[in-house]
Design a protein around this nucleic acid. Sequence first.
DNA 1: TCTATTGTTTACCTCAAGGTGAAGTGTTGT
DNA 2: ACAACACTTCACCTTGAGGTAAACAATAGA
Lengths: 123, 123
Amino acid sequence: MMTSRTWPTAEPLDGVFLALSDPTRRAVIGRLGQGGASVSELAQPFEMSLPAFMKHVRVLESCGVVRTEKRGRVRVCVLEGQAISQAESWLAQQRAAWQAQADRLVTYVEDEQEGVEGDRRRQ
Amino acid sequence: MMTSRTWPTAEPLDGVFLALSDPTRRAVIGRLGQGGASVSELAQPFEMSLPAFMKHVRVLESCGVVRTEKRGRVRVCVLEGQAISQAESWLAQQRAAWQAQADRLVTYVEDEQEGVEGDRRRQ
DNA sequence: TCTATTGTTTACCTCAAGGTGAAGTGTTGT
DNA sequence: ACAACACTTCACCTTGAGGTAAACAATAGA
C-alpha cells in the first residue's frame, strides 16, 4: 500500500506511462498527432459516455501529454510533444543499456567459443 | 466497464505501458539493463515484502518485458529487448507525426505572417 | 539429515481506475 | 428570449492494482 517507499511516489514518468497504457488514450494521442481537436470531436469514435471520455482527457492533461484550453463552450485539445519525448528517451536509454550489455555477452560467448575451438584443435 | 468496445481490450502495448508506469518496475528494468539477476537480488533494494515484489516480476514477465527461468531454487530474470523496442517505436511514431504537423503549422503561420508584412508594406 | 535460503501460495485489505446515468452550467445561434 | 450544444458535476458502482502476513514448498550446503 506504499506506506514507506525509497523514492517519492508519483514521478513524472509514472503518469505518462499510465496514460499510455489505455487504448482509448493512445487512440486520442494518435488523432491529436494530426492536429488539435475539441473534446466531442475526439470522443466521437468511442462507444463511451462523455463523462467517461472526459476522464481520459483529464488523465492525458494532468500528466502533460495533452494541453487543453477552453474557448467559449468548446474545449480544444492539443498534443504536447515534450512529455512523449521524455518517455521515449527513457525507453531509448534502457534499450541502449540492454543492447550494450547483450553485445558484451555475445562477445564473451564468442571468445569462449574460440577457446573451445582452440582446445578442439589441440586434441 | 468496457461492456462494448471498438477495439479488443488488452492489446500488447497496454500491458507494456502499464508495466512501465510503476517506479519499482522501471528500477528493475534499469537494473536488468546491466545483466540478468535473481529475484531476491532484484528485490534487495526495495522496502517491500517478497510476495509484493514477485507480483512486479510477474507483471514484467506477462507483458514480455522480462523473461524468467527457474534454476534450482532461484528464479533468474533477464530483460527482453523486443517489448521495450515496440513501445519505443510506437512513441517515436507519435512524436514524428506530431512534429510533422507542428512543422506544417509553423510554415503556415510564417506564410500568413509574410502576407501580413506584405500588406503592411503596401500601406 | 538437518537447516538456512529462496521462492510460492493463500487469504485478505485498501484505494484508484474506469465506467454509468442524471442533473446542472455556461455559450451560441436563431 | 430560448433552444440546442458542449461540456461539467455528482453520486454511484465494479474491478484490478499494489500491498500485507502467514504458512507452505523445494533446493543447497554443512
